[in-house]
Design a protein around this nucleic acid. Structure first.
Lengths: 93, 93
DNA sequence: TTGACAGGCAAGTGGTTACTTGCATATAAA
DNA sequence: TTTATATGCAAGTAACCACTTGCCTGTCAA
């Protein structure tokens, strides 16, 4: 929603990797994301660190969540990115 | 070119305002940009601060420069933004 | 009910970064 | 040649941010 929160969310490389991972497989839980980041992306981030990153992404509207029992599933929403190309239309090369 | 530099450049509100200002009027000098930011956008940034912001934007490829004598003109280039929507295609609402 | 599992909250810490300050370089006008 | 103009460089400072640490809440299985 807010431009500041959107760009702040995108400014961190770990958060961008989380978006990549959710794009590959949408609807993952916190623990699933942690495992994938360590295994495949070679990142050694703690559960708390990833949790805080997901909160930032959710504030920016890039990630939505869905609760089911003790599980919380995370979904990618790329629609806030539209505001970027609307603000600065992309030139032809 | 590099994703880290691109998102880092976009993460600062003053730098985003500079992009807005260059979109309004392309090819401004450092002093012109300083004046506009103070006058119209209500920002009280020093010349050195703006100069450093422009260097970050130039490293990210969002601003190109052209020297003419003691003047240096700054031009907006939005093409690096294409990599964002290519990395995370925008969903339909 | 007890234990394991999934996640949340909050204070403290280290590194990054935006900004200032002071000086330097280069071009153009007087 | 002086002087003003336009910009560049580099060290120091203060605020911000990612991360850790420790403890707490809620859910489900045994």
């Amino acid at each position: 929603m807010d431009a500041a929160e959107l760009f702040k969310a995108l400014s961190d490389p770990t958060r961008r990797t989380i978006l990549d991972e959710l794009q590959r497989s949408d609807g993952q839980t916190l623990f699933e994301i942690c495992g994938r980041l360590i295994m495949k992306h070679g990142l050694s981030s703690s559960r708390q660190a990833i949790s805080q990153h997901l909160a930032v992404l959710e504030e920016a509207g890039l990630v939505t969540t869905r609760r089911e029992g003790r599980y919380k599933f995370h979904h990618l929403d790329t629609s806030p990115l539209r505001s970027i190309v609307e603000r600065w239309p992309i030139n032809d090369d």
